[in-house]
Amino acid sequence: DEAATLRFQTHHSPTSLQGKALIRFAELANKGSAGTLQVEMLTSSSVVKSSEAFEAAATGIIDGDATGAGYVTGKNPAFQFYGDIMGGYSKPDEILGWYKDAGGLDLANQLYEQFNMHLVGVFVATPESLGSTTTLAGIGDLKGWKFRSPPGMESEIFQKLGSAPVVMPFGEVFTAMSTGTVSGADASTLAVNKGLGLYDVGKHASYPGFHSMPIEHVTVNLDKWNALSDAQKQVLRDAVDTIAEEVASQSAVDDEKAAAELTAAGVTLHNWSEEDRLAFRKVAQEVWADWAQRSPEAKAAYESHVAYMAKLGILK
């Protein structure tokens, strides 16, 4: 019996935390299936552009997409609630809990399967940190704060708080920040931002982060998924679960190390107060509610998230 070949593509580079984890996912699946699965992880979007990987998998150009739902919100706004619930959860475990214990995975698959894709599982790193040349001690500092932001839900939330999000390619952020064109930028986690050199220009960081925690998904073409045996399916699910734990803990370790080094280097780390985080979440919730109106699937996801957050006590 020939092994089932599954070619996944991720936008992450093979040397990044997530890229390494996904390569390990492939190894775990191949080993765990005793050779009945041949999973390949193509890195750095080497076959199709990141935003096209989902559809490429859906139509069988590749077999699986390992980017995130944030790339396909144009197909259905509901994907925003599976890509990043901005300002919502603050720990990886909370998101993973929604998928596992609150029916999130089944709800997600009602949406994913409409697009001929099956969601195997998700993983997340620590919440992202902002970088800024001006102080970011609390919600008041966001007023009039001009920063580089990806377009979409994030800029809507910050606009409501009086910030001025500017859409510009990330490569140009550094000059823009040193010349004062913008004050800050949103890129990734504290450790990754440090590696990018963001804190060489902006000496203020939000940490632990409050505004964004992108969800990485591992998805398979639905026909390919249905052709797998139950044992093979379980191997893939287990492999995602394994890397999900590793990524969450490793990114926390990386962030702590970066935080110590940055503090020593004179960067100020701003840990927002509980009230400010709640205030941010409250404004974010208005934007979520607005997105919930944009499709029935979005509404379903929104309601499920809000119910779960209330249960966890992170929404008042």
């Binding site: 199709v48 552009k49 096209e52 490429a56």
Partner: peptide, 19 residues
């Protein structure tokens, strides 16, 4: 045949590249 559609995907990806 499904992989031939890669051509369309690639052209779309590049045509919508801001740089």
């Amino acid at each position: 045949t499904p992989v031939i559609a890669l051509a369309h995907k690639t052209v779309y990806g590049l045509a919508t590249e801001y740089t």
